[in-house]
């Protein structure tokens, strides 16, 4: 029970990866001393072939996870193997290079591979971190639930301020209308909040609703008679609204972070495939 892709089958693929890395290192250290480490030795060819096949297989995960009728294994098992064997590629491919780098297509393929692997490792961390953080943040509710609560509070606030002075009505409804959630990729990842509020005909930034809350609190100190009670209720509701917006914005940011790495990982894998083909073809033709 409760087995994630990291401890799938008691970490079977972790040990497979360790064995692969260990065997590669031992073979590398034991290779005939008079040979310079190079992709062209028998060991170089072996490691290169292994690495290339591994890359093809790793990329095939994109197909396997959509092949829902497939009977072989579970996607969890595939992901487990993908993570561990993919990471082992860092060692296998590095040994294949024999530490010969340059400004050429061969090194390009290597660098692309490293970037793909590092983005993947970030992905592992993100998948292990963000879902739990988001669940805790939302206290087991869905984002849709929280949006519904926000809608309720907005409706409530708009009704409540109807009974209050025009300046309060104006500020609160403009703050509600000019609240911004989400936005472009950067805005989501960085949690940018470009909400605004209009006070006395001027539009001010209202990041995290701080401006409007400050205004309301100040206005409350000036309130008199029956206005005081009603306005303090509005201030309380607005505080709750601020909290909900924080949760929503943080959740969106976490979700963006949880998924952003894929936009690097997948396209660069394709680029890696192209560079790898070029590397192999050029090696056989020009070497």
């Amino acid at each position: 029970m409760h087995i994630s892709f990291l401890n799938h089958a008691n970490g079977r693929y972790f040990w497979v990866a360790i064995a692969l890395v260990g065997a590669s290192i031992v073979a590398y250290l034991l290779q005939e001393p008079h040979q310079t480490p190079n992709g062209g030795t028998w060991l170089g060819y072996t490691l290169g072939t292994m690495g290339a096949l591994l890359i093809l297989w790793l990329i095939y995960l994109g197909r396997r996870k959509r092949n829902f009728a497939a009977g072989w294994g579970t996607v969890r098992g595939w992901v487990s193997a993908h993570v561990y064997l993919g990471t082992s590629l860092l060692v296998v491919a590095t040994l294949h290079t024999g530490f010969q780098f340059g400004i050429n297509v061969h090194t390009l393929a290597y660098v692309l591979m490293c970037v793909v692997i590092v983005s993947g490792l970030f992905g592992v961390w993100a998948y292990r971190t963000y879902p739990e953080a988001r669940n805790e943040l939302k206290r087991s509710q869905t984002l849709d639930d929280i949006f519904l609560q926000l809608e309720d509070i907005d409706g409530q606030l708009k009704r409540d301020v109807n009974a209050l002075a025009a300046d309060i009505r104006g500020v609160v409804s403009s703050a509600i209308d000019r609240t911004e959630i989400g936005g472009g990729m950067y805005a989501q990842l960085a949690g940018v909040d470009s909400s605004k509020v209009m006070i006395d005909g001027n539009v001010y930034p209202n990041t995290d609703q701080v401006r409007v809350v400050a205004w309301l609190v100040e206005r409350l100190s000036l309130a008199e008679g029956s206005e005081t009670g009603k306005l303090s209720a509005v201030v309380r509701s607005y505080g709750a609204r601020q909290k909900l917006l924080q949760v929503i914005r943080t959740d969106i940011r976490f979700q963006a972070l949880q998924e952003a790495w894929l936009y690097l990982h997948v396209p660069l894998s394709i680029a890696l495939l192209a560079a790898l083909l070029t590397h192999i073809v050029s090696v056989f033709i020009y070497w």
Binding site: S4, F68, V75, V79
Partner: peptide, 17 residues
């Protein structure tokens, strides 16, 4: 389906059980 419930088999992280 050979292999059992596809929802669980398709889950990449192991969340579905």
């Amino acid at each position: 389906q050979s292999g059992g419930p596809s929802c669980v088999r398709a889950c990449p992280t192991g969340a579905a059980m």
